Simulated scan of single mutants.
Amino acid sequence: MFLSFYGRDASAMQFIAAMELGRTEHGITDFTLVSPEGTRNHVQVGSAERLGKFTGRLPRQNLFGSLNHLFVYDKRLQEIDKPNRIGWVVSNVDAGIEEKVWALVKTLAPIALLDHWQGPLIAWCREKGAVHELGGGLYPRIGNLHALRVSISDHFIRHVSEGVRNRVLLP
């Protein structure tokens, strides 16, 4: 979903070009990432059309010479899917991530949500999988970047309505 790395300009562009070529032109269709602990993680590239790229050049006066910082990411990380009520929160720090998740829940929900409902509703969303952090199972997180998928369903709306009706969520 998201890859960030440093490299020489030619190497970074060669990597991007190889991903865009695909299998028929003998490009990269998969690669292996190695964590600092030495764990090997296999990555499938999939369709290169869904990938966004962003690059920045580091100052030449650094220890390693001329380096680029390249970000490769799934474009869905930037877009909110309003019809399906799905969005993503990507953050490199734990501080403030709950507020970002809450802001996205309020954006995706078709009903008004009061800020003092944040605690119980976010807890319910995490319990039911409406807020799900990526980085476990077959695809572990490497590094300190957190990605959370937020998906608001009709079940969430019914839960809020019942909470207000039963006076669990007070105005």
Score class of each variant (00 low, 15 high):
158 R>I: 10
135 G>D: 04
126 R>F: 01
142 I>M: 12
155 H>R: 05
132 H>R: 11
123 A>N: 07
169 L>I: 08
140 P>V: 07
148 L>I: 12
142 I>A: 15
158 R>F: 10
161 S>M: 14
149 R>Y: 07
146 H>T: 14
149 R>S: 10
125 C>L: 10
124 W>C: 04
134 L>M: 15
138 L>W: 06
160 V>Q: 01
153 S>I: 01
148 L>P: 03
156 F>G: 00
132 H>C: 09
163 G>S: 12
157 I>H: 03
148 L>T: 08
145 L>A: 08
123 A>R: 13
148 L>E: 08
125 C>R: 00
135 G>E: 07
142 I>W: 02
157 I>C: 06
159 H>S: 04
165 R>C: 09
162 E>N: 11
144 N>T: 14
124 W>K: 06
155 H>Q: 12
165 R>P: 11
130 A>P: 00
139 Y>V: 02
143 G>N: 14
151 S>Q: 10
135 G>S: 03
152 I>R: 00
164 V>S: 02
139 Y>D: 01
123 A>I: 04
166 N>G: 08
128 K>H: 11
143 G>P: 12
127 E>K: 12
156 F>W: 02
168 V>L: 09
130 A>Q: 05
143 G>L: 14
168 V>C: 08
128 K>A: 06
154 D>Y: 05
146 H>L: 13
140 P>D: 04
150 V>I: 09
169 L>H: 02
143 G>I: 10
135 G>W: 02
127 E>V: 03
132 H>L: 08
123 A>L: 10
166 N>S: 11
132 H>Y: 07
149 R>E: 14
155 H>D: 03
140 P>M: 06
148 L>G: 05
130 A>W: 13
169 L>Y: 01
153 S>A: 06
137 G>H: 01
148 L>C: 12
162 E>S: 11
134 L>K: 09
